[in-house]
């Protein structure tokens, strides 16, 4: 499949909050109640459509275990978007958000779009973190917020796609340099975007060419 852009995402957060389940729901549209612990990082990819453009999401689903933290940090770099996930039924996963956020900010581009996700919204009866708390944390740190359920698929699609929309907007505003792959964005092959950048390069060529001639003479 051809695409206009490729965005690199990372999913981070404490172990057991449902990072891999969110990914599985998003890529395969299924839920697996028992999931193996993620070792290091796993991958998922899916094509989405924004503004009539095909965008490929390449998702790095990291291990939540503390002992893998130093390894997974290596993978943050070059991500355009991050899903920072906590479990609404376990307050400690919410309390650890600050440390995750610090890590993310430190090891990735400052333009990275971060989506805060309170997962397991289907377990309302066991709720330990109020929705308002999530909202206010997000507001305080400039994040987008959403409660999701990987089990019922509620808001899962939205979480991934809204993050992409945000990134796309930033590209339109010129906040992201799409030619710098360190920003986690790649331009797809043979696309209008590619063609236009080619034309831009062409005009630069002309300018350089004349510069060259003057050098020669």
């Amino acid at each position: 499949m051809s695409y206009a852009y490729l965005f690199k995402y990372i999913i981070i957060g404490d172990t057991g909050v449902g990072k891999s389940c969110l990914l599985l729901q998003f890529t395969d549209k299924r839920f697996q109640p028992v999931h193996d612990l993620t070792i290091g990082v796993e991958f998922g990819a899916r094509m989405i459509n924004i503004d009539n453009k095909q965008i490929k999401l390449q998702i790095w689903d990291t291990a939540g275990q503390e002992s893998f933290r130093s390894i997974t940090r290596s993978y943050y770099r070059g991500a355009a978007g991050a899903l920072l996930v906590y479990d609404i039924t376990r307050r400690e996963t919410f309390n650890h958000l600050t440390s995750w956020l610090e890590d993310a900010r430190q090891h990735s581009s400052s333009n990275m779009v971060i989506m805060l996700i309170g997962n397991k919204s289907d377990l309302e009866s066991r709720r330990d973190v109020r929705k308002e708390e999530g909202e206010s944390f997000a507001r305080e740190h400039g994040l987008v917020f959403m409660e999701t359920s990987a089990k019922t698929a509620a808001n899962v699609e939205e979480a991934f796609i809204n993050t992409a929309k945000e990134i796309y907007q930033k590209i339109q505003q010129g906040l992201f340099d799409v030619n710098n792959e360190a920003n986690g964005i790649k331009i797809g092959p043979q696309q209008p975007a590619g063609a236009s950048s080619g034309a831009g390069a062409g005009s630069r060529h002309g300018a350089q060419g004349s510069g060259d001639t003057s050098n020669c003479c």
Partner: peptide
């Protein structure tokens, strides 16, 4: 890029 080279 190279194209530039040749165009120059």
């Amino acid at each position: 890029g190279l194209d530039e080279q040749s165009s120059s």
